[in-house]
Every structure is written in C-alpha cells, then in structure tokens.
Write a protein that binds this DNA or RNA. Sequence first.
DNA 1: GAGATATATCGGCTTTTCTCGATATATCTA
DNA 2: TAGATATATCGAGAAAAGCCGATATATCTC
Lengths: 99, 99
Amino acid sequence: MEQVEIFKALSNKTRLNILAWLKEPEDSFPGQKEFGFEHGVCVGQIQQKAGLTQSTVSEYLTTLQRAGLVKSTRLGQWTYYRRNEEAFAALSQLIQSEL
Amino acid sequence: MEQVEIFKALSNKTRLNILAWLKEPEDSFPGQKEFGFEHGVCVGQIQQKAGLTQSTVSEYLTTLQRAGLVKSTRLGQWTYYRRNEEAFAALSQLIQSEL
DNA sequence: GAGATATATCGGCTTTTCTCGATATATCTA
DNA sequence: TAGATATATCGAGAAAAGCCGATATATCTC
C-alpha cells in the first residue's frame, strides 16, 4: 500500500475513532459481548457508536481495509472488522526510518 | 496539534516528497550548497524540485509547519525550512502507543 | 420461496483539497 | 527611492472526500 493512501485513511476523525475503539473492543462495544471479539466487531455496532449512516461507516471500513489498517471476516450475515496490528507497527517503523 | 491535522498534512505525495528531500538536503539540493543547510532549504529550491508553482509550494510548507512537521527561519529575503525531527519521533511513538 | 436482517454499492449534494495565476509584502541593491 | 528578488496570501476553478438516502446483494429463518 502506498504511504500516502495510509495517511489519507488516517485523515478523518471518525476513522481514527474507529481504530481507537477497535483497540479495546470489550470496553468500546459492550453490546456485542455475547458474540466475542476474536473476529472483531461487526459493522452495525461500529455504526451505532459512530453515529453516522450505515453506508458511510461501511465505506470508511472499506477505506481502512484498503489501507491495510484493518482486516475483516465474514461470518453469516455479519462482517467483523479488527485492527491489523502489524500494519501499525510497520507504520511506526516507517516514520522512524524512512519518512 | 490535532492528530488528524498531522495525517492530513501527510496525505499528499508532494508534501511527503518535500519531507524526504529535507531529510538529506545535501543530496537533494546540490544547488544550494554555497549557503549551507544549518537553517534548512529555501522555498525556491524546494519549488524547483517539486515542479509546482511558487504559491502552491509555499502553501504546502505552511501546511507542514502548521502540523509541526517542519520549522522555518527567515534570513533576509529567504525563508529556510527544515524538518522538526522531534515531531516525527513523537508521531512514531503515538502510533505505537495511542493510535 | 418470502420476508427479515446485515452489509455493500451507487448517485448525488456539499465541503474540502489541489493547484494555479495574480497580487501583496518584505528585503536587498543600486 | 526604484527596481529586483523571494516569499506569502488571495481568489477561483477542478478534483477529491464527506456523507447521505436509495438500492443491491448476501445470508438467515420460516
């Protein structure tokens, strides 16, 4: 993924919030605790917390995924999103060394 | 400076290039070697290398400065820009711990 | 198969960003 | 002071991003 695309994905307050929420999903999404968090958090929960429409949040998650910052798993009718921690480690490293 | 503003400043290929050039100014701007690089590189040199208009490059440098990523020094009729390495270290750290 | 639910995609309107040319400001030099 | 040079700021048109409602697709349940 191109560096600039990663930074574009991070250039939005809601998307930054989503990433922060996904860092502590148990605290951020108590409404989903019965499903567990191994595969991440489903779109509906994120949408509710973000307070934007379903289409916008879905698009934001796609943006984050194209940047490599999150991964998704489809289970039945739900899509679960979770952070890709390797991407964050790599980004931190990149800023230290290359940027 | 707000996180999202830093990422917005980094969301442009030319601005990323400028930051990369300022990392190795001796290699990137041989045309300025007679003036030294202690205070940075002047806008004209950066503009020439970027291949965009003077006004655009000036604005980009202002954007980077507002984000805290570069510092400037005015000497006579020249403004010299240089990287603010502390900001990059802080950003790398932020991505590791908070983001 | 029909309806319900979850997510993704599409079309469009609004706001922001990109980038330019023109102009303003500051400094230098003659 | 006049002109030259360097940079900053302004105004505007084009492109991209933000965000929505409507619709499409996929899965589940009956």
